[in-house]
Simulated scan of single mutants.
Amino acid sequence: MEARPRDPLGQVAGADGCPGGWICIVLDRETSAVTPLLCRSSEELLTIRPEPSVLAIDMPIGLPDAGDRDCDRIARTLLGPRRSSVFPAPIRPSLVAVTQQGADAISRAIVGRGVGAQAWGLYRRVLSLDCLIGPDEQTRCVEVHPELSFLALNGDRPMPHSKHSPEGIAARRAVIDAAFGPEAFPSVRQAISPKDATDDDLLDAMAACWTANRIAEGIARRIPDKPPTDSRGLRMEMWF
């Protein structure tokens, strides 16, 4: 695992998919101000202004033609009890499908693994990002997984409870408060309607933003150390 070179002060951002589209948390690295944005589309997310020097996105970027990605396998090992939060990335051939049944058939034929309803629910976002992000954009747009960010926030220990439990929300809120200050999450929650983003969506986006700042600082980690590229030349990697 390696760090990227340190960036000058500016803005960084973290994004997580939510019912309203994307919740994006922007951090001004000079003033420490945190600003939440609700982006209705991937196009809107990738064109927010001012442009952040790092945009950390909780969604696969770089897709295999078959099989699993190394970064997914390593992430599951690191997360231990939270390993089930890492879903297999879609294989690229299945992105052409227009229905879950079509994607399921393609995936089963190539890798012997079906596409469930929850995985299919991510396909639209994965495809939209895949159309917008190429190898050049990966200098700015990076893939993260919130549970890896929370692992780093929690002293390199997986979070003890699922984010879908009250205990899990409280534990994640505690480390986010420690990282951003106790006033940050309430201000974000007040600005975004619960129908557009749940508490765990907001916490995940804030964790992604925290990782974006670590990338800008040059202290983030990447898995794997030397990521392979997919058929489009995109690196298959995760940062935290």
Score class of each variant (00 low, 15 high):
residue 2 E to A: 12
residue 2 E to N: 13
residue 8 P to G: 08
residue 11 Q to N: 10
residue 13 A to C: 11
residue 13 A to T: 04
residue 17 G to R: 10
residue 18 C to G: 03
residue 20 G to I: 08
residue 25 I to Y: 01
residue 30 E to C: 00
residue 30 E to M: 10
residue 35 T to N: 11
residue 39 C to V: 02
residue 39 C to A: 13
residue 41 S to K: 02
residue 50 P to S: 01
residue 65 D to R: 09
residue 65 D to Y: 04
residue 71 C to L: 10
residue 72 D to T: 10
residue 73 R to P: 02
residue 76 R to Q: 14
residue 77 T to G: 12
residue 79 L to Y: 06
residue 79 L to M: 09
residue 89 A to V: 07
residue 93 P to I: 00
residue 93 P to H: 06
residue 99 T to Q: 04
residue 100 Q to G: 12
residue 100 Q to M: 15
residue 101 Q to E: 15
residue 107 S to L: 02
residue 108 R to L: 14
residue 108 R to Y: 00
residue 112 G to R: 04
residue 114 G to C: 02
residue 118 Q to S: 13
residue 119 A to D: 03
residue 120 W to H: 04
residue 120 W to P: 04
residue 124 R to N: 12
residue 131 C to I: 07
residue 142 V to S: 01
residue 143 E to T: 01
residue 149 S to Q: 07
residue 149 S to I: 02
residue 149 S to G: 13
residue 150 F to L: 11
residue 152 A to H: 14
residue 159 M to K: 02
residue 166 P to H: 02
residue 167 E to G: 00
residue 167 E to V: 06
residue 172 R to M: 08
residue 173 R to W: 05
residue 175 V to P: 05
residue 176 I to L: 10
residue 181 G to L: 04
residue 181 G to A: 07
residue 187 S to G: 08
residue 187 S to R: 15
residue 196 D to Q: 15
residue 196 D to S: 15
residue 197 A to H: 11
residue 197 A to I: 11
residue 204 D to R: 03
residue 206 M to V: 02
residue 208 A to W: 11
residue 208 A to D: 06
residue 214 R to F: 06
residue 215 I to K: 09
residue 221 R to G: 15
residue 229 T to L: 14
residue 231 S to M: 03
residue 237 E to Q: 13
residue 238 M to K: 11
residue 238 M to V: 03
residue 239 W to Q: 03
residue 240 F to P: 02
residue 240 F to I: 07
